[in-house]
């Protein structure tokens, strides 16, 4: 575990010298800022009616954006090590494959935590301009769910990054898998019943967030879902790194 931490520390520091990470952060806050502004403006003139949904304003677009931004944050993690050959260095050091994979993932999640911390500004503002203020329980639930969701997406990213020595390939593979999980719910339209529809609905990654956490519902089965996806893809990534040795 100590090795995972060492790997994570190095990778986390790398985000702060990486132009990609800054581009991601810039895009994120630009889009979120514009949407937030728009929402604040329209709600003060009572355009849509109803109480302002600050949590939705922020996390609605935030989650969608993560679909595009996660691959950007995870694509280099293992792909670059393979391309430059530094993987040889790591795999001949006394560390286990799972430590390497977990460390990489941890770094990406930690970087996301920094971004999440900055995003709190929207809620501080939101709290100030709404009456009677925000329901902090809902905000907390939205944050927790978001972190679980992003952790799962990051695990997918680490997995695809282990498959390729090319960052672009890793980017699109992550995007494809995430998008697949995002849209799989379309196969089970509202009202359809039966075991197939149930399974498909459970696989839908967006449903677990939009139906539960963002509304302030801390759902156990959704939590299990996110954790399972994370563990599964980290496990797969570990196996891929192990199998590299056998080629």
């Amino acid at each position: 575990m100590r090795n995972a931490w060492t790997i994570a520390k190095r990778e986390f520091n790398h985000y702060f010298v990486s132009p990609v990470a800054y581009a991601v952060a810039f895009t994120l806050f630009l889009v979120l800022g514009i949407i937030f502004n728009f929402n604040v403006a329209t709600s003060t003139i009572g355009f849509f009616g109803g109480p302002p949904q600050v949590t939705q304003w922020v996390f609605g677009p935030f989650v969608t954006l993560m679909l595009f931004l996660t691959p950007g944050l995870t694509m280099r993690l293992l792909a670059e090590e393979q391309r430059t050959g530094t993987l040889e260095l790591l795999l001949t050091a006394p560390i286990k494959e799972w430590e390497l994979v977990t460390g990489k993932w941890l770094a990406a999640v930690a970087f996301m935590c920094v971004i999440l911390f900055i995003s709190a500004i929207y809620f501080v503002i939101g709290n100030a301009i709404t009456d009677p203020g925000l329901d902090w329980g809902v905000v907390g639930s939205a944050y927790l769910g978001f972190l679980l969701l992003v952790a799962a997406l990051m695990a997918i990213g680490v997995f695809t990054s282990s498959l390729f020595a090319n960052q672009i390939a890793a980017f699109f593979a992550t995007f494809a898998i995430s998008l697949g999980l995002w849209l799989v719910g379309l196969f089970a339209p509202q009202g359809e019943t039966g075991i197939f529809a149930e399974v498909v609905r459970y696989l839908d990654i967006s449903g677990h967030y939009y139906d539960n956490f963002i509304r302030g519902v801390l759902d156990l089965s959704s939590t299990v879902y996110f954790v399972s996806v994370t563990v599964l893809f980290l496990f797969l990534a570990t196996r891929v790194v192990e199998s590299r040795r056998w080629r």
């Binding site: 430059t84 050959g85 530094t86 260095l89 001949t92 006394p94």
Partner: peptide, 18 residues
């Protein structure tokens, strides 16, 4: 393998570095 790796120093051919 892990015990071996603890005791071996290795300079790879391409000298991969960060």
């Amino acid at each position: 393998s892990l015990e071996v790796r603890k005791r071996v120093g290795y300079l790879p051919e391409s000298v991969p570095l960060y």
